[in-house]
Design a protein around this nucleic acid. Structure first.
Lengths: 352, 352
DNA sequence: AATCGTTTCCAAAGCGCTTTGGATGCCGGA
DNA sequence: TCCGGCATCCAAAGCGCTTTGGAAACGATT
């Protein structure tokens, strides 16, 4: 059942039926009721493609996810929670989410196509790198877009929402320093990512401010998986000068760090402290009462919601001046941190 | 730049330009080259909405994800890997993925709309329950769809791919029984889900075959989070008759189980054994060499790929007879299992 | 009685593509 | 010379909706 058939059945013009259903004022309330009833009875839904073609709006928002055989963004820990949050907001506003997985090499073409094909009204950019070429590209293409995160070396104004990774890691590192830890391992995410760069610089800033040497022997960077956290921590703990505390870039590698610590018969929070960044992932909450890990926390689901809201605002009013939101993470104290052990020998001793 | 402008510039009809670009035979190779060059030069991409409207195909595949304030499917551990796999295949075939988050209450309406609106050519059904109403609904709507999983009580034929949860859990439980374990805790997923039912029945079947009582005191069912695994295992271990082994429904609660075990100063694989179902989630791999957990393994990413392939086949040829694939999980032995301790007193003893 | 403003409706022109049903020109065979 | 077949191209009719620019009817105002 399409609009023509419906209008014929009602003995009305397509114009009137369309207007009746879309809530335009210039139609008699009585006829509107009649139209609505008929539409309901026939389970009529306007064809979205036709509607889009006529209006120019697709009511879809694109998310381009690059993938390679090695890794992809979808399998990023935080991805599903982000789109969960964004999706809720889309639903409220009548938008759908268009997910487009593309080969790493095809990424530019994918954005071009998405913009030109007109299948989306706006785009969310995930996981910006330090000088992300996508931002310039999308500006050139002239399609509304919103970045989750930031791209340090991009100087033109663009719309983004980011958490202040640097201050979060600086504060967390200071927290450990205050507890007397002087050798702190950094289990960072892949430093291709802008946020990982910022986290490292926060960590370094805290150390430098206290006159503590920044030692790359206790700094690692890779995709944030559990085994990565395990092996990185394992290596450092086995070294001659093991850290007494770790900073992990996500709760996932932090679980690996925990496993490494426990595999050496050490106790988390007593022998070795751990702080992680906690994105408040729904299926991996940081405990139920007292947090398992002391953590810098910021909900990625909330970020998804907010990005979606702001992007929709942008779509509705393209002349909005660029928005930039910077969220501060909160530092929540859990069971995984405690004063540095009196003598660092504790850790070495267990090595046998 | 649209088709009309392009054709005017070329001094050709829209028909010819369209046919040249779409590889139809009735156009001179020389003109085709000319058209392609011009299209390339102007960075022309056909408007997808117009194309869809004309052809009737949207080249989009829908995934409807119900959500509620409490929980949703997106935040299911396996979700992102599944769509990662499916997305790869979609990309190869020129399809995009339409993700539609909807309120639990609105789910039926969402499917109806998706089908009627014509914005998708096919639908993937996630997380079927035991007698899932969506299957009947989609059959009635007459849109190609594919189910990831199965719905036990649906008797009509439909297309699905599932892993044999029952045999996987039966074999895993038998493996523990062979090691001498006689009290085995079950940390199941939410038994609203069909697969969770099957896993339980596999577990029960193994016990019954050995004449061991099925005891609901050591059986739990809930959303598969880490804290759930922790608290469920914690409770059981603290009981008068604690299990010497656990079966967990996913690696995520298994991590919680591990934490519970270690928090009681027990050792996984020696004092208490753990087996989990391992979906081979990319950011949570089960170790790198020897698996951390002994596990029934089946890659959910592969499942995503396969579902996508089969659905696309269905779309291209709607008359394909219903396909049903049942995958057997493989049982991989890792570090988390070992013979049952000589006396169950080991566990009790540590309780003080 | 003529004019005007409202209200309510409609015919028709798009939106940008595909596809049907020719038209045209050219060549070889009868 | 005429005709059929072939290769190449095109005009125009959709696809199902929105939206522009009236038209018709009616009561109210002058």
């Amino acid at each position: 059942m399409n609009l023509r058939e419906l209008s014929e059945e009602l003995g009305l013009s397509q114009t009137t039926v369309s207007r009746a259903l879309n809530g335009f004022p210039e139609v008699n309330e009585a006829t509107r009721k009649r139209v609505q009833a008929a539409a309901e009875a026939h389970n009529y839904r306007p064809n979205q493609k036709a509607k889009s073609l006529a209006t120019g709006k697709s009511m879809q928002i694109g998310h381009v996810i690059p993938f390679s055989p090695q890794h992809d963004m979808v399998s990023n820990v935080v991805f599903s929670d982000f789109i969960g949050g964004a999706g809720e907001v889309y639903a409220q506003h009548g938008y759908d989410m268009l997910l487009s997985l593309v080969n790493f090499d095809d990424e530019e073409r994918a954005y071009r196509e998405l913009a030109r094909k007109g299948s989306v009204d706006g785009i969310i950019v995930h996981g910006p790198t330090q000088d992300d070429p996508r931002i310039g590209l999308l500006q050139e293409l002239g399609i509304p877009f919103f970045v989750h995160g930031r791209s340090t070396d991009v100087t033109t104004a663009y719309n983004y929402l980011d958490v202040n990774s640097k201050s979060a890691f600086r504060r967390a590192t200071e927290f450990l320093l205050d507890l007397g830890h002087e050798r702190i391992g950094l289990i960072n995410g892949s430093e291709r990512m802008d946020f990982a760069q910022r986290r490292r610089s926060g960590y370094e800033a805290a150390l430098i401010a206290r006159g503590i040497e920044v030692d790359t022997d206790v700094m690692r960077s890779a995709e944030m998986t559990e085994p990565y956290g395990f092996s990185a921590a394992q290596e450092m703990l086995a070294s001659d000068n093991p850290p007494t505390a770790f900073m992990a870039s996500s709760i996932v590698p932090a679980l690996g760090v925990r496993r490494a610590i426990e595999s050496r018969n050490l106790t988390v929070g007593r022998d070795v402290s751990v702080i992680c960044f906690d994105d408040a992932i729904s299926y991996m909450p940081n405990g139920e009462g007292e947090p398992i890990f002391t953590a810098a926390r910021s909900s990625v689901r909330d970020a998804g919601r907010r990005c979606a809201e702001l992007l929709i605002g942008l779509i509705n009013d393209p002349d909005t001046p660029p928005v930039a939101e910077l969220w501060e993470a909160e530092l929540v104290v859990g069971q995984s941190t405690g004063p540095a052990p009196k003598s660092a020998a504790t850790i070495a001793a267990k090595k046998a």
